[in-house]
Nucleic acid binder design. Structure first.
Length: 244
DNA sequence: TGGCAAATACTG
DNA sequence: CAGTAT
DNA sequence: GCCA
């Protein structure tokens, strides 16, 4: 139930805090917060993301992976792409995606989205895939059983523990907060932690650390300079937070 | 044409 | 273990 | 989907 780091698709050099060549990959979280943080191709990536999500919903994971890499490359591209040639020259973008990018640039729309996402089944699959704990396989099983709404799932489906939580908090998990609010929560956790020992180090990671404008959750890394004093703190911290 | 992210958790 | 999901 |  853990989330691995998000690997950047771009291939830009990574300014480093250590002079030696360490086995650290090209991670988004390893880049300085001052690196380009604005997506100059948002009008393109927002549409490709819709298609990518639709393909992921249908278990077409490799096609979705191709889209994900292309979208990442577009987001870190230093200019707004305007031509087919410029698009296809970007690593990770081939002729097929260059076609789609060109269409978006010229018409402001991508007809493929309609064909793929317009159908009733695609819409239902999207609803079900957004249940935390339900992925493409289970979502398709639900559709096969004739389920069409969350209410169908609630009343008819057999759900494991995780999926029950996912369904009961459906909209909460979909909801995102402004990053300022995530910062406040991080601070609250830091304060509570340092009441145990002011030498604890609290770092808010995840989407907040990557500079996102909104956050779906707040990830806080708790450590200690001596490398071990933070062990076992989690349970006590939760106890404290719950009591307030 | 075939490979393409890695690590971890839960379930039957 | 194999499948599913995060 | 992209790429070797």
């Amino acid at each position: 139930m853990e989330e691995a780091g998000e690997r950047s698709t771009s291939n830009q050099s990574t300014p480093t805090t250590s002079p030696t060549k360490l086995p650290r990959g090209n991670w988004v979280c390893a880049k300085p917060s001052t690196s380009q943080s604005v997506n100059l191709n948002e009008h393109i990536t927002e549409k490709l993301e819709v298609l990518m999500n639709a393909y992921k919903n249908t278990k077409d994971q490799w096609r979705a992976l191709g889209y994900r890499k292309a979208i990442g490359a577009l987001k870190s591209h230093p200019r707004a792409v305007t031509t087919w040639e410029e698009a296809s020259a970007i690593p990770g973008i081939g002729s097929r995606l260059a076609d789609k990018i060109a269409e978006i640039v010229q018409s402001g729309h991508l007809r493929k989205i309609d064909h793929v996402c317009q159908g009733e089944e695609a819409k239902i699959l999207d609803i079900f895939n957004n249940i935390w704990g339900v992925g493409p396989t289970v979502a398709q099983e639900f559709v096969q059983l004739g389920y069409k709404t969350l209410e169908d799932v609630r009343t008819k489906a057999k759900l494991n523990k995780q999926q029950q939580i996912g369904l009961s908090h459906y909209y909460d998990f979909l909801d995102r907060m402004p990053r300022d609010e995530a910062a406040e929560i991080g601070k609250l956790i830091e304060d509570a932690t340092k009441e145990f020992n002011p030498n604890f180090v609290c770092t808010t990671c995840g989407s907040f650390r990557r500079g996102k404008k909104t956050c779906g959750d707040v990830d806080v890394l708790i450590s200690h300079l001596d490398g071990h004093s933070h062990k076992g703190i989690l349970f006590k911290l939760l106890e404290k937070l719950h009591s307030t």
